[in-house]
């Protein structure tokens, strides 16, 4: 069929599912995250990495609390739900008790940097053989768009209405940059999911992080910058650009440390 689709009357045929894009390890495609949210893309990338490395029958995901928690009862890998900020110590207990498993956490910037910073720092310092994944959207998405410890200067949130002011609110913690300086960390990278190319690059980081764990090189960490149009109060289609211009300008993407082969 050529031409345009008329929208001034009901469609001539009912909608049908052309293809099911649900990845292998996500049970149900539907989720209640916002349209344009970057977290499902990040979640999907992590699960594809698990699948592609053949780790499905050994993987245990430990979830923090944020919007991504919606995926914790929706996966075909084993899941342990932890509290807000506390996933790294819980993951530590799992990994020490079951050293043959592949353990990764899924946390947000509010979870990992604001509430639970010491957890991830100590876990990295111990060189714990786990992978921590942080979905960084620079806000508490779940609670409705509040300032987190990763919110960039100038960013408007419900608790920094005029934008984050360094004199009033201090400056953001750049977690990946901080962790790169911790000896126990073998792999530290920061990716983003605002374009197909960046998703592909982020996926490579996730593959490498799991490889680091598989080879017992030490602690591995992937920070993923994700869109949160709702918490940023920007139009859905503007979110990828907003991410690039604001978050990614401060939380600079790239591989910060790779000592997997050392």
């Amino acid at each position: 069929m050529t031409g345009f689709v008329p929208t001034d009357r009901p469609p001539s045929a009912p909608a049908r599912l052309v293809d099911d894009f649900t990845p292998a390890l996500i049970d149900v495609g539907a989720h209640h995250l916002c349209p344009g949210c970057g977290e499902p893309v990040a979640m999907r990338s992590a699960l594809e990495a698990v699948d592609e490395l053949g780790l499905t029958r050994r993987a245990i995901a430990v979830f923090g609390i944020g919007c991504y928690t919606a995926f914790s009862n929706n996966l075909d890998v084993e899941v342990l739900q932890a509290l807000h900020g506390r996933a790294p110590s819980v993951a530590t207990g799992v990994k020490r008790a079951r050293p043959d498993s592949i353990v990764f956490t899924v946390q947000g910037d509010g979870d990992m940097v604001s509430e639970g910073l010491q957890e991830v720092l100590h876990t990295a310092a111990r060189g714990e053989s786990v992978t921590c994944i942080m979905l960084n959207n620079g806000v508490f998405g779940e609670t409705g768009g509040h300032m987190s410890a990763a919110t960039v200067v100038g960013q408007r949130t419900k608790t920094s209405l005029e934008g984050r002011d360094p004199d009033l609110h201090g400056r953001p913690i750049l977690l990946a940059s901080l962790l790169a300086h911790v000896d126990g960390a073998a792999y530290v990278a920061r990716g983003l999911v605002n374009s197909a190319g960046n998703v592909a690059r982020t996926k490579k980081m996730l593959l490498r992080a799991f490889e680091a764990q598989e080879r017992r090189a030490g602690f591995s960490f992937v920070e993923i910058l994700t869109m949160c149009p709702t918490g940023w109060f920007v139009e859905t289609e503007e979110a990828p650009g907003y991410l690039e211009d604001n978050l990614a300008a401060v939380h600079t993407p790239g591989v910060l440390k790779d000592e997997v082969d050392r």
Binding site: A24, D27, T56, R57, A59, I60, D76, E78, R98
Partner: peptide, 9 residues
């Protein structure tokens, strides 16, 4: 948990 039930549905 030990990971082994992953991928079984």
């Amino acid at each position: 948990l030990d990971g082994s039930s992953g991928g079984t549905g």
